[in-house]
Simulated assay, not measured.
Amino acid sequence: MQQYWIRWENWMTQHAPRLLNLLRSGASFESVESLEKLIGTALPPAFKTFYAIHDGQQKARAGLVDADQLLSIEDITAQWYHWKDQLDAGTFTWRDEPIQSTPDTGIKNDWWNPLWIPFTSDGFGNHLCIDLDPAPGGKHGQIITLWHDDSHRAILAPSFEAWLGDYLTALEKGEYIFVKKWGIVHKDTFLNYND
């Protein structure tokens, strides 16, 4: 995963050097192990290697993933607890029936699943997640979308490494730009304006 971080840091050096200051030092083995114990299963090896190099980003308005924060292990844990608390409180039920999502084939139709591990956040309850409990037709470790107020769940990539490679290739092709207020954003987004 080192080569992926080199590519990302090279892009930031050329286009947004201030973002380099947001990178955290690597996550400890203990913090990752603690998260795995919490969720009751192992995280994908590529994800753990990636986080051993940089533990996501510092909290800031500027995000590294299309304006979203790349969460630290501590923040992943906090987001997981937030969703789990809502699940346990019955927030995702209506008249004693589970509220279902409308997922792509390969994703379970839960509103949220404890084995959907959020690793990005827009600050409004929307995430990219690693799906460690796919439905038939899906792949363990696939990357999916999770919206707090929209039922659709989409598969973005078959694995964390595939998602990361696709994102970095898009960066290098110029599909994303740096906007001071928001960080790295897609060049066609409404967030791309002179600030």
Rank of each mutant, 00 (worst) to 15 (best):
A46L: 12
A46C: 09
F50K: 08
Y51S: 11
A52T: 12
I53Q: 03
Q58Y: 09
A60Y: 03
R61Y: 01
R61P: 09
G63C: 03
G63A: 03
D66W: 06
D68S: 10
D68I: 00
L71R: 00
T77W: 03
A78Y: 12
H82L: 05
W83M: 13
W83E: 00
K84L: 08
K84N: 08
Q86N: 15
D88Y: 13
F92A: 12
W94H: 13
R95I: 14
R95A: 15
R95S: 14
E97K: 12
Q100A: 15
S101A: 13
T102W: 14
G106S: 06
I107P: 08
I107T: 07
K108R: 15
W111T: 11
W111N: 03
W112T: 03
W116E: 02
D122A: 12
D122Y: 12
D122N: 03
G123C: 13
F124C: 08
F124V: 10
G125N: 07
G125D: 15
N126Q: 09
N126T: 01
H127L: 13
L128V: 04
C129K: 09
C129I: 11
D131P: 07
D131G: 02
D131A: 00
G137L: 07
G137E: 10
G138V: 01
G138K: 05
H140E: 15
Q142G: 00
Q142M: 04
I143M: 11
I143W: 07
T145R: 03
L146Y: 15
L146F: 15
H148L: 07
D150F: 14
S151P: 09
H152K: 13
H152V: 13
H152P: 01
H152W: 07
R153D: 04
I155V: 12
I155W: 13
L156D: 00
L156I: 02
A157K: 05
A157P: 04
P158N: 01
P158T: 04
F160S: 00
W163V: 09
G165F: 05
D166H: 12
Y167G: 09
L168G: 08
T169I: 11
E172Y: 01
E172L: 06
K173Q: 13
K173L: 15
G174I: 13
G174M: 09
I177K: 01
K180Y: 06
K180M: 01
W182R: 02
